[in-house]
Amino acid sequence: MLFTFINSLTLGMAVFLIATGLTLIFGIMRILNFAHGACFMMGAYISSTILGDMPGSVWALIGAALVSGLVVGVFGLIVQHVVLARLHGQDEHFSLIATYAVMLVTAGAIKMVWGLEFHSVDPPPGLDGGVSIFGTFVPSFSLFIIAAGIAVFLILDYVIHRSWGGKLAVAIARDGWTSSLMGINAPLGISVVVTGSFALAGLAGGLLLPNQTLSPVLGDTFLLLAFITIVIGGLGNIRGAFIAALLLAVIDGINAWFLPGSPGTLIYLGMVTCLLLWPNGILGESRL
């Protein structure tokens, strides 16, 4: 039971790590970023190139993840300037399709650079075994993912709701025109948030790398789950996404415990129920 719960929590936090960037870009630009999964995958591939088959230590893994985040963030900045900024003020569905196109190009480019074969990177020493909690064996990498999820949540929550920069971003998201009247550089703010969102995708890719198999379908694995999470949580709402990720974990745990015969179905049912109960997400839609 505890074991199932920790497993599901691992899944929930992994999905949360990916959902953060997605909800951030939604908060400021009102678009679902289809390219997010591909960017996550890009981060994972970059990390694997830095690390090789076997990371030397936990810090090497985190360092590589940060570098991947940086690279993917720069990619996001380019996408923002070349594509998204030009579509600003247009029907938001154009941006949606633009991100779809970016996804196609990114996924195609990844295949050309890294090939089609499966690759695998191992957990660093120290995280490759397990620990015993109340007599239950728990893989240490699961604990690492859970810790990473909570850490990312706390940092983001602080940055958005407490820091000066975060408040500026919230102001731009709520009303870009008025904030620019007040002397805030709105386009710069948007660029920073978009870069941050892409960087989070890259970071998630680097952190989750030892947990997954590298293959060109990696991006699709998480994208729908991350969509569901941010929708249940309330779009653009980091706290909502966190709660939704926990809920996802509980639903997945219930599924594994009571309905092992139909894995993966309860999540869809749960989502439909959640949307009917809270049509705007658990914590409501939020402009960041």
Binding site: V83, R86, L87, Q90, F94, I97, A98, Y100, A101, V102, M103, L104, V105, A107, G108, A109, K111, M112
Partner: peptide, 20 residues
């Protein structure tokens, strides 16, 4: 073969950016 995704994505981007 193999670069079709990139081409489709690229054409889509151009259409969206040029013909709004």
């Amino acid at each position: 073969i193999g670069i079709q995704e990139v081409i489709t994505g690229g054409i889509l981007l151009v259409v969206i950016l040029v013909f709004r």
